[in-house]
Design a protein around this nucleic acid. Structure first.
Lengths: 144, 144
DNA sequence: CAGCATCCATGTAGATACTG
DNA sequence: CAGTATCTACATGGATGCTG
């Protein structure tokens, strides 16, 4: 379940370690890499910013985030909780009522993620144009 | 090869469209989602910031980015090129010399990504602590 | 050196059915 | 309503060998 967090590749060479306890995402063996992979996640990138407006129930999130399955929602929320980015508030009622909210840590990260979402929404035109151009280059400029 | 970019799920419900041509990552049917998925990528998150210091050769990137395979490097770079985020400069020499550099668009995105990397490096302690606490909560507070 | 083609083990995520 | 469990198709990505 958390298997992806294990750095199991054998070929990493830990250098003389010039920088002592510096976290470095470019070091394969650095734990920060595992955390990077956690946030390099499609659903995380949507869920975390979605919580910025306040507490949200499971069903709310299902509705607001188009296309997410119950499974992926729960799974991602658990990971986020485990990493201290969200709090899970179970009101212990029947029918169940569970709310999720950002922690301090989660909020600071969600700020950055919102900017990413914003970048995407703002630059989609440019990207789509680039794709069109690329297709053109491929077909026209090279073979054929 | 680019199959992941197709929004193929059939169950999306396009609502009355209150917001006209607004890009919205929360809409499953919105193209911005495809772009979001592009940048929600472990290697993109490393490669793009790595190019901020200037042009880089394939081999350079292989060395600086711990654990990346030739396949994933090339594949990711192609995707980035296709989306207008990097330029590929083939010097047409033998032995081959190919350089990659950020485009304007890529630079603006890489700024945000660098911040993400920075966040990870800065908050790794907090996250690791949260994980430890979470383990404790699970074992102590619940069953068992 | 840069990169492609192929093979293949593993991981991922959707669908479905069920529980308290 | 919130969540779990199971099954499975599919994508992912690593390893290897080959090319100009």
């Amino acid at each position: 379940m958390v298997s992806k967090l294990v750095l199991s590749s054998p070929q990493y060479e830990t250098p003389p370690a010039n920088s002592p306890a510096q976290a470095d995402v470019y070091e394969q063996a650095c734990p920060s890499r595992a955390i990077l992979e956690l946030i390099a996640d499609k659903w995380t990138l949507l869920i975390l910013p979605a919580l910025r407006s306040g507490r949200r129930r499971n069903g709310d999130l299902m509705r607001v985030i188009g296309g997410v399955s119950q499974k992926m929602l729960t799974q991602t929320l658990r990971e986020l909780e485990r990493n201290g980015l969200v709090n899970r508030i179970d009101h212990q009622e029947v029918p169940p009522r569970v709310e999720y909210e950002l922690t301090e840590l989660g909020r600071s990260l969600s700020d950055l993620m919102r900017k990413l979402d914003g970048w995407v929404e703002a630059n989609i035109e440019a990207v789509l144009k680039a794709r069109a151009d690329f297709e053109g280059k491929e077909h026209g400029g090279n073979a054929q």
